[in-house]
Design a protein around this nucleic acid. Structure first.
Length: 819
RNA sequence: GCCGGGAUGGCGGAAUUGGCAGACGCGCGGGUCUCAAAAACCCGUGAGCUAGCGCUCGUGAGGGUUCGAUCCCCUCUCCCGGCACCA
């Protein structure tokens, strides 16, 4: 009998599958199979594959293989998100050109993916740093530019001093650079933006289509977009007569406004402070705010603020109220100025009490103590009845808000409006290893897009990567000097490159027709394959990549290039692989690499470790599943050994020896269970069902019976999970002529999955007292009679009287007693 | 602070969503084989009581609904994640 040796089996099949040209998605029009697009978030080539890759791609590969077996024409592509800072930083550190470092890592990862048995269509492989790809990234930029969706503006931006580049809002996590953790600084710079805010409403609305997304991801996107409905109301500055609009979600509190607050950075502040004679107090505050990074306000005190010496006029009451400048009002949201209602807003309340501003309650809760502005100790932000509000006294939220808005509009004092937290997407980066922004700055023509015929704008290779001063492209002696495409005069290229998230916002479209020469994608191929059937990847992309890709898709829809508005209707997030409760990292010295384990125990084992450890979405703590020795023999390897010998023995015995009926039934139930589990992506549970079947096959064989059908089924069901051992057993031991991975998914016999007998649970007062084997179609009367006849049940009832009989034939009888 | 998601044996996790809690696996204990080890195989493994048939307790804590609650409702504790002056 052969022994299971993955190192002997697996490399053999890698080679054979490659020779046989497996896993190609078919673009043959004669192929009538329904399509299925199984997409994995493409990797960044930072080195060899890590555990996170092993988990995510194992899950994605199960989907692709399972759908293939179900008769779908499956597109399961792979590529690399190959631009980005690590390559450039490696170049600075080691003197290796970014391209060289990147391509070497890609080759390494590609080899590892093959070794792991990933069923990728290698003919479609792409990478974003290839000019044949970024040509179209640039082309898309020019189209966005034409539509006014790419524009340049000067504004305060997040600057990472360590990476020497600006960052998008989405790349700043709690005030720090997402990539290197350095606290970002704020700089006023002229930068390129994509106008994602134009799509804010649609990005919210279309989430309705995403029922098959994890709720938390949708929630994160909703919070990030931050839609709030309210009104814009215009206040007038008494001293100058200028009109300053504010945004509020509570126009019903307009009669409770007792002061007015500008953001310290508001353009009117300096003028008004000088007029009011308070500029010498405001200026230090402004300097302090400017010095603080944009996203972290931990050093800013809510109660900080300075009276400007000027006043605003409340448009509904005509009342004059003092104007303040305070850091708690943000310049980047709403209008940069607010009406303050201390009685009904926590922050306004704190500010008012500190600065001695009156508090006036204008909303009374429906029940409980009435509020008094002079004595209340905290703001009341809830719903209630309007008081001290002129014509609106007695109106109740939420209807009152609508009434006030309507009235403001009629009176011309304001209007209903919606505000978003989402800002435009800053896409310029002052670094080298990215797609150059295809814009030429001409002294006469202004910003001119590089014409399509001149694309791609290729990166020069003779570049000085050292950090400092200008970006590498800006420092290059000749690269930026070009003739203006419009007037032919002397002009310069934009020397910034695009955020790598731009590259990854459309790669899934390129896979549909990776060699298409006339555009970013062949519209017919995209119409065929998109949208994605299942998208698999890490939750760390919940906001960035997924939001940007959704935005791109909507722009392309508006351009008439695609016919759908959401690219990924179904999303699965795998958990993280951690060690001892902490994320794995080189600096912590707790890294466990997948490839050494593949070498030692086999790719099938590594895949199964990942898939069996728990639900796909949950984190895997390697220390908990493998103990202190990360190289220990995995439990799933023992199982595969048992599968290997059991199937081998069953094959030797063949069909000549009869199979027990119980095993036949279990086989069909296993098909039913595993199919349902894979449909629901409960892979860990599916594996446990296969283990049960394996155990029963073992029992049958040890009892001298045959197990050929069960063994064949086991191998077929195992295929998507452990492709190597399944193929070896299928083709060698079971002698099948073609690959198990193209065999039809087994179907169960509905008669055989039904139980003939079941265990009737007999309870007395809700406690289990007996279990009786009964026919599955037993009637209620018979079930009750059997239950009452049970000695154990009778003993439990004792002298008491049975007052109620619950019968749920054939599963359960519950006798309820009294006495 | 606000918004989500959790909490089940020594560990990872099951439980057809109101009907046998702990499937399957890891680990551990005992055994077979072996000169020995590894591997493989067999038995046991929630806690307590009991010679035994069995009994009692048990799904973070407390309460409720129900014949019956890991599952539904209320209160609380702790853990994880996201956002954090967004007017």
């Amino acid at each position: 009998m052969r022994k299971y040796d993955a190192s002997e089996i697996e490399p053999k099949w890698v080679k054979i599958w490659e020779e046989e040209g497996r896993h190609r998605a078919s673009d043959d029009p004669a192929d009538t199979r329904p399509k299925f697009y199984a997409l994995d978030m493409f990797p960044y080539p930072s080195g060899d594959l890590h555990m996170g890759h092993a988990e995510a791609f194992s899950g994605g590969d199960v989907v692709a293989r399972y759908r293939t077996r179900q008769g779908f024409n499956v597109l399961h592509p792979i590529g690399w998100d190959a631009f980005g800072l690590p390559a450039e930083n490696a170049a600075i550190k080691r003197g290796v050109p970014p391209a060289e470092w990147t391509y070497a890592n890609i080759e390494q990862q590609a080899a590892s993916f093959k070794r792991m048995g990933m069923s990728f269509d290698w003919s479609r492989r792409l990478n974003t740093c290839d000019p044949s790809y970024y040509r179209w990234t640039q082309w898309l930029f020019t189209k966005f530019f034409e539509r006014g969706l790419a524009y340049r503006k000067t504004s305060p931006v997040n600057w990472c001093p360590r990476d020497a580049t600006v960052l998008a809002n989405e790349q700043v996590i709690q005030g720090a650079c997402e990539r290197c953790g350095t606290m970002v600084e704020r700089r006023d710079l002229t930068q390129w933006f994509y106008k994602i805010t134009d799509y804010a409403q649609r990005l919210v609305d279309d989430m309705e289509q995403l029922d098959a997304w994890p709720e938390r991801v949708k929630l994160m996107q909703r919070n990030w977009i931050g839609r709030s409905q309210g009104a814009e109301v215009t206040f007038t500055i008494k001293e100058t007569g200028e009109e300053i609009p504010v945004f509020t979600t509570r126009p019903d509190t307009l009669w409770g406004v007792t002061f007015f607050v500008f953001s310290v950075e508001h353009p009117a502040v300096r003028r008004l402070a000088e007029l009011g004679g308070t500029w010498d107090q405001v200026k230090p505050l402004l300097d302090k705010v400017r010095a603080t990074s944009m996203n972290s306000r931990e050093e800013v005190d809510t109660k900080d603020g300075v009276f400007l010496g000027t006043h605003a006029v409340n448009p509904v009451s005509g009342e004059e109220i003092p104007c303040y400048a305070a850091p708690y009002v943000l310049m980047g949201y709403g209008t940069g100025a607010i009406m303050a209602v201390p009685a009904h807003d926590e922050r306004d309340f704190a500010f008012a009490r500190t600065h001695g501003v009156p508090v006036r309650a204008v909303i009374q809760p429906r029940d409980g103590e009435p509020m008094d502005g002079d004595t209340m100790t905290q703001a009341y932000a809830g719903e209630g009845i309007m008081t001290n509000s002129g014509p609106f006294d007695g109106e109740e939220t939420p209807a009152s808000i609508e009434k006030v808005v309507k009235w403001l509009e009629q009176e011309g004092r304001g209007k209903g409006t919606v505000n978003f937290r989402l800002r435009d997407w800053l896409i310029s980066r002052q670094r080298y290893w990215g797609a150059p922004i295809p814009i030429i700055h001409c002294p006469t023509c202004g910003e001119v897009a590089v014409p399509e015929s001149d694309l791609p704008v290729e990166l020069p290779t003779d570049v000085d990567f050292e950090l400092g001063g200008e970006s590498p492209l800006a420092r290059h002696p000749s690269w930026k000097h070009v003739a203006c495409p419009t007037c032919g005069g002397e002009a310069v290229r934009d020397t910034d490159t695009m955020d790598t998230f731009v590259d990854s916002s459309w790669y899934y479209l390129r896979y549909c027709s990776p060699d298409y020469p006339d555009g970013p994608f062949d519209p017919a191929a995209v119409a065929k394959w998109m949208p994605v059937g299942q998208y698999t990847g890490g939750v760390e992309h919940a906001i960035l990549h997924l939001l940007y890709s959704r935005f791109f898709t909507k722009v392309l829809f508006d351009m008439g290039m695609v016919s759908f508005t959401e690219p990924f209707p179904k999303l699965m997030n795998q958990g993280q692989v951690i060690y001892g409760g902490a994320s794995m990292s080189k600096s912590k010295g707790n890294m466990v690499e997948p490839m050494p384990i593949v070498e030692r125990w086999g790719a099938d084992s590594v895949r199964l470790i990942m898939l069996f450890a728990g639900p796909f979405e949950d984190d895997i703590d390697w220390k908990l599943i493998a103990g202190d020795d990360p190289g220990r023999r995995p439990g799933v390897h023992s199982w595969l050994s048992r599968v290997f010998t059991a199937v081998g023995e069953a094959a030797e015995r063949g069909f000549a020896v009869a199979e027990p009926e119980g095993l036949v039934r279990l086989t069909h139930r296993t098909i039913q269970w595993v199919t349902a589990d894979l449909e629901a992506f409960r892979i860990n549970v599916a594996i446990s069902k296969l283990q049960v079947l394996t155990n029963e096959i073992r029992v049958a064989l040890d009892g001298g019976s045959g197990a050929m059908d069960a063994a064949r089924t086991l191998v077929q069901l195992l295929g998507p999970l452990a492709p190597f051992i399944a193929e070896e057993l299928w083709r060698v031991d079971l002698g099948q002529p073609d690959s198990v991975h193209v065999s039809a998914w087994p179907v169960f016999d509905p008669v055989l999955v039904m139980d003939e007998t079941v265990q009737l649970i007999v309870q007395v007062d809700g406690r289990v007292r007996d279990r009786i084997d009964v026919a599955a179609d037993i009637g209620e009367g018979d079930a009750l009679a059997l239950a009452k006849a049970s000695e154990n049940a009778q003993r439990a009832v004792g002298e008491r009287e049975i007052v109620k009989e619950i019968v749920r034939a054939p599963k359960l009888v519950n006798l309820v007693t009294r006495g």
